[in-house]
Design a protein around this nucleic acid. Sequence first.
RNA 1: UGCCUGAUGGUGUAACGGUAGCACAACUGUUUUUGGUGCAGUUUGUCUUGGUUCGAAUCCAGGUCAGGCAACCA
Length: 552
Amino acid sequence: MSEEKSLNFIEEIIAKDLAEGKHASILTRFPPEPNGYLHIGHAKSICLNFGLANTFGGGTNLRFDDTNPVTEDTEYVESIKADVQWLGFNWVKECYASDYFDQLYSFAIQLIEKGLAYVDDSNAEEIAAQKGTPTVPGTGNAFRDRSIAENLELFTAMKEGKYEDGAKVLRAKIDLSSPNMHMRDPLLYRIKRAHHHRTGDAWCIYPMYDFAHGQSDAIENITHSICTLEFIPHRPLYEWGIEQLQLFPSKQYEFARLNMTYTVMSKRKLLQLVNEAHVSSWDDPRMPTISGMRRRGYTPESIRDFCERIGIAKRENIIDFSLLEFCVREHLNKIAQRRMVVTDPIKLVITNYDKGSEILHSENNPEDPNGGVREVPFSKELWIQKDDFMEEPTKKYFRLGPGLMVRLKSAYIIKCDSFEKDAAGNITTVHASYFPESKSGSDTSGLHVKGTLHWVSAAHAIPVVLNEYDRLFSVEDVANAEGDFKDYINPHSLTTITTAWAEPALENDPKQARFQFLRKGYFYQDVTSTSNQLVFNRTVTLKDTWAKEQKK
RNA sequence: UGCCUGAUGGUGUAACGGUAGCACAACUGUUUUUGGUGCAGUUUGUCUUGGUUCGAAUCCAGGUCAGGCAACCA
């Protein structure tokens, strides 16, 4: 049985280009502006660009689109590089648009010399007004008719810092009545005295996106320049620049950006969440950032798998967050070490257990036959989950209750004999008796029970802190919800549990290890965790059909 | 009332004139020393109106709806 993998529309274009000999090999690029942290939407683009190069044989450049010094910073450059590498990709070259500033400047001179660019003294408002509207053509101004010599002189003076910020701009001379607003004499250069994170104060004029991106692609000989849908109207301008300057014919293609339920993807909104302390930082585990997901315990494999599954197309989309969670669970199920942690404990006393304590063994991962076992101490007094006992059990309840039997995972079958309550009526202690012949691995009891509970020996337990995360927002389509997006922040997106007891093995496990805390979910040690106080982040819950059943 | 995109189950994504498939979600059943995992199965779809054709999700025409475009942002 052969699985036919269908190509997405970009792959089809590339396959065709290669087949026709248009290119011997392909070169793509991932071009973030270093003004924020990468998020899962960027991961889609990263997987696309690097993935294309992988499947068709070729490479991918990492290029920082750093043409606006006001918002950019090396902090972001570093985080972006770390995130791309963590996702598992290697770039051919690390490039910066700012490396091309000299070249871009000479391109501008060329356009002026061809009569295709002019210096405009109008201010921003005037230019906007003169551009017209989508239905009303723009009108020119006197500056448009300046001579080539005058434009050359003025542009040189702009570069030399003879004018105030905003006093003049360089514009392309294209078509003020174009139905495409981007072709109505777009700005090429603006005067901006700001410290650039790489070029410092060497420049006081900076190229606009439309005079940097396509040109950078061409300089690097990018064959396929892939961006998101909102750049479609820029494409004629992209092509105009390449044609007029007679550069390498890079081609732009557009796909739909990623949207996900219960979260936001815009940099502006993410920045706001950080600045207004709705989350602790860019790498807060609730954030849809790569760094947040890494800290939460998502694996690069699962994110790549997710990006593979969502596909590439041109229609707007909103992907269920549960698909990402499915990918994370699927991977973690295979690799995570199993451990037992009781999060909301009550005492379980095995009344007929007189051995003091013993060492039992439990498999590290039932999915992995070679995963080995770990030692788990068992004793007379244990901690079990509070909701694993019910005073008056309902019909389908498979756990502990008066007279009911369950298995303690990797240990014995027990039978509940009695329980104690405090003055407030809360269950404090459950008494049970165990069946010595029901020991895991050598069970001769012939008993059969439906429920299996996780547990921790009270005398051997170590305290751990758990951060349990839920969705950041309470509505599916946050971006399209009525009013301020911050009104929909889920107030219960983080629950910190300080009452949890863990089995001692956890103390000696490596910090980077992935865990499944049995019946609770997948967990990953937080960056704040120390040997004195272990702190774990819940990556994702286990699928819980019992919780679902109860809601009915 | 301009230009540009797009429209296939709840959500994504295939089918390139010839059986509407796959995944997630939801729901059954089954297995299970995790109410996890695995396995088996069920439910749900081509925006609309015409046209071309033996045959249309696919081609053509009109309509409807959704999104984008008028930053000295990218």
